[in-house]
Computed example of a mutant assay.
Amino acid sequence: MKKAMMATWSESEESSEEENEKEVENMCFIAIDELDEVNSNLSDEEIHDVFEELYEDFEKLNLKIISLKKKIQQLEKELREVGEKFSKVEISKTQLEKENEILRKENEWLTSSLSIFSCG
C-alpha cells in the first residue's frame, strides 16, 4: 500500500513538474511575442536607449553581486572564527566537568572522613 502511494505521489510530482515546464514555455512564448510587438514599434535609437538602460542596470547589479560576494567571504571568515572559539569553549567545558567530578569525589571523601572522625 505504501509503495503504491509513493508511486502515485511521485507520478503526480512528475506531472506537476511537466505542467510547470509547459507553463514556463508558454510564458516565454508570450514574452517573445510581446517583445516582437514592442520591437516593431520602436526605432533603432529607442532600442539603443533601452539597451543602454539595461546595460546600466546590469553594471549596477554586477557591482552589487561583487559586494555581496565580499560580504559572504567576510561572514564565512567570521563563522570559522566563531567555530574555533566554540571548539575551545567545548574543550574548556570538558576539562571543567572533569575537574568538577574530581572535586565532588574529594568532597564526598572528606565529608565521610569527617563524619567518621566525629563519630570516633
Rank of each mutant, 00 (worst) to 15 (best):
L35G: 01
M5P: 00
F29D: 15
N20P: 02
K93A: 08
E34I: 04
S113M: 14
N26E: 13
E21C: 03
K85H: 14
N20F: 13
I102L: 14
E46N: 03
T111I: 09
M6N: 00
F58H: 05
I32S: 01
S40Q: 11
L35P: 00
D36G: 02
H48T: 13
K70R: 03
H48R: 14
M1L: 10
E21M: 05
E81L: 11
Q74I: 04
S15Y: 04
T8R: 09
I102H: 11
S113E: 15
K60I: 10
S16M: 10
K3V: 04
F117D: 10
S113G: 11
E23Y: 06
L96A: 09
K77A: 02
K64Q: 12
T111L: 09
K77V: 00
V50T: 06
K60D: 12
V38I: 12
C119R: 14
F29E: 15
L96C: 05
S10G: 06
L75E: 04
L54V: 11
K2H: 10
E45S: 07
S115R: 13
K93D: 08
W109K: 15
E25V: 05
F86N: 09
E84V: 09
M27Y: 09
K69S: 02
M6Q: 00
S115I: 11
A7H: 01
E17F: 11
E56P: 01
E78I: 05
K71W: 01
F58R: 02
E108P: 01
E59G: 00
K22I: 08
S15V: 07
N20A: 15
S40G: 05
N100H: 12
V38G: 00
E97H: 05
K93C: 05
S43E: 06
K3F: 04
L103M: 08
V24I: 11
E14S: 09
K98W: 07
